[in-house]
């Protein structure tokens, strides 16, 4: 099963390498990873999506906690969360197809952020499924390039990590 781990770490060089190295050497596979600074400039927050059985995920959490620079690890898989991913999608767009792509973009509340003669760049945010759905719908027009961020999550309500 796919799990989403939220990990707060010291905002220092090398921390990402420690976390990534740990996944590699213990044989865990990272599906997606997002990391950036938080409200506290000394702390970074990592959101790591990893697929595995319960016992393995528990072991990952414990091993992460052993890293000196890891402050806290939470498994948000069963928590009510808000999750977002962002994607930039460069779609081929001829004068004939441009209108249709724009319509799809509006339906998905995405934004066109760049327009060129034969292409558009659409910026879309949402959960993984929403972005997948959008990508599938514009695929027939010809996708030149997709860049997606890792997923970020936040617990709903007052709860925080």
């Amino acid at each position: 099963m796919r799990h989403t781990l939220s990990v707060s770490v010291e905002n220092r060089p090398g921390v990402l390498a420690r976390v990534a190295g740990l996944f590699k050497r213990r044989g865990f596979n990272i599906e997606s990873l997002a990391v950036n600074i938080t409200q506290d400039p000394t702390t970074s927050r990592m959101t790591i999506v990893v697929d595995g059985e319960e016992a393995m995920i528990e072991q990952i959490g414990k091993q992460l906690n052993k890293l000196i620079e890891v402050i806290k690890v939470a498994d948000y898989t069963f928590t009510s969360t808000l999750e977002r991913e962002l994607a930039l999608v460069k779609v081929e767009a001829t004068p004939q197809t441009r209108r249709e792509i724009l319509d799809l973009t509006h339906i998905f509340r995405a934004t066109v952020v760049d327009v060129a003669e034969n292409s558009l760049i659409v910026e879309i945010t949402g959960d993984v499924e929403k972005i997948d759905a959008f990508v599938n719908l514009v695929r027939p027009y010809g996708i030149k390039e997709i860049v997606r961020t890792g997923k970020i999550v936040m617990a709903r309500g007052m709860q925080s990590l």
Binding site: Q59, K62, N65, K66
Partner: peptide, 8 residues
Amino acid sequence: IDPAEIGK
């Protein structure tokens, strides 16, 4: 003393 050893 190492929680990661338990159940490993």
